[in-house]
């Protein structure tokens, strides 16, 4: 088992290095950093001096190593557009995105798994069919349309909930949280629902199809032949056996929740990393893009590792063979 984990860790580091090199390539070659940093009227000599100062004359691999070294120290350079250190910009917006993603994931998992189990067990029931039909609509509706719909309904028409922003936040020093104020929580409802809805349908459909699959297996038939109660069969045996793939997908989905937050944050003007990133794409603000790329990949790879660890708790077979 340790060898397996070490290999996974090695793979994770490899992915991060690849991403860092891609980020560096973006940073170094896509758009000239010097031109982006100074105005039109700066002399060529001045530019050359800046170029030397920034180390752009050094060998490429030295530059790349320096770029990665700096990134490891949370130094991602200066935003072209905002003229501020990228780290500060992202640091100020990270809590908003993480809180949104957390709320959305909880929403998706807490509702998605029970619905999936239900529709899996009673596959031909009228309610299950209705839920499945509605879920197909959920998968097909673009996130931003869902957001707009919710805003029109609950903000514009009913005036129940705010349509944009985070509400009041409480500053805990390094972390500004919206969880502690009424307006913060109210402001969270619509964006979190918008962001979580797609994942909810995915989780539900996945749990359902896994349940259907598992309920057909020999060991479930054997459980029935032994006269175990439906409850024991469905929840003790079937659900547990669906968990490996479900945990994988949920792990990957948390990654895509952070990516989809870009859209939700744009619709709701939520002051998070996604909004910052989309502005960076619009303005070709490469340092922010590169930093965002690296940060999200660290998050994704981290989640993948955690998912891998969780396997070991769920499935004893992996502990022996290294993989399924």
């Amino acid at each position: 088992m340790p060898t397996h984990l070490i290999r996974r860790l090695f793979e994770a580091v490899l992915v991060l290095v690849v991403v860092a090199v891609v980020a560096f390539t973006l940073f170094r070659f896509v758009g000239d950093p010097v031109n982006q940093m100074v105005g039109q009227d700066v002399s060529i000599a001045e530019r050359e001096r800046l170029r030397r100062e920034l180390g752009l004359d050094d060998a490429l691999f030295v530059q790349c190593a320096r770029f990665i070294w700096n990134a490891l120290h949370f130094d991602f350079g200066t935003s072209y557009k905002f003229r501020q250190p990228v780290t500060d910009l992202i640091g100020a917006r990270l809590p908003a995105t993480l809180e949104l993603a957390f709320a959305a994931s909880v929403f998706a998992i807490a509702i998605g798994i029970p619905l999936g189990v239900r529709t899996g067990i009673h596959r031909d029931g009228a309610l299950s069919k209705t839920i499945m039909a509605v879920s197909l609509i959920g998968v097909s509706l673009p996130t931003f349309l869902i957001g707009i719909l919710l805003i029109y309904l609950f903000a514009v028409t009913l005036h129940w909930l705010p349509s944009y922003g985070r509400g009041d936040v409480v500053n805990l020093g390094f972390w500004a949280t919206g969880f502690l104020t009424g307006s913060g929580l109210r402001a969270l409802i619509l964006p979190a629902t918008t962001l979580g809805l797609f994942q909810l349908t995915l989780v539900m459909r996945l749990v359902r199809s896994e349940m259907l699959e598992v309920l057909r297996t020999d060991y479930i038939r054997f459980c029935r032949a032994r006269g175990l109660t439906d409850r024991a069969i469905h929840f003790r045996h079937a659900l547990k056996n669906t968990l490996v793939p479900v945990v994988t997908i949920i792990g990957l989905q948390i990654g895509s929740i952070i990516a989809f937050a870009i859209i939700t944050e744009t619709v709701f003007q939520w002051p998070g990393m996604g909004l910052l990133f989309i502005q960076a794409v619009q303005n070709a603000d490469i340092p922010i893009m590169a930093a965002y790329l690296m940060l999200t990949s660290v998050i994704f790879v981290g989640i993948n590792l955690v998912v891998d660890l969780i396997y070991h708790f769920i499935d004893p077979r992996i502990r022996v063979s290294g993989r399924l």
Partner: peptide, 24 residues
């Protein structure tokens, strides 16, 4: 009928490799 199964009628399936819940 569920109470009859296991209690009065037992059943053994063909493939022992797939008849047992692998996670329990």
């Amino acid at each position: 009928m569920r109470r009859v199964r296991g209690k009065q009628i037992g059943m053994i399936f063909q493939d022992p490799l797939t008849s047992l819940d692998p996670l329990m």
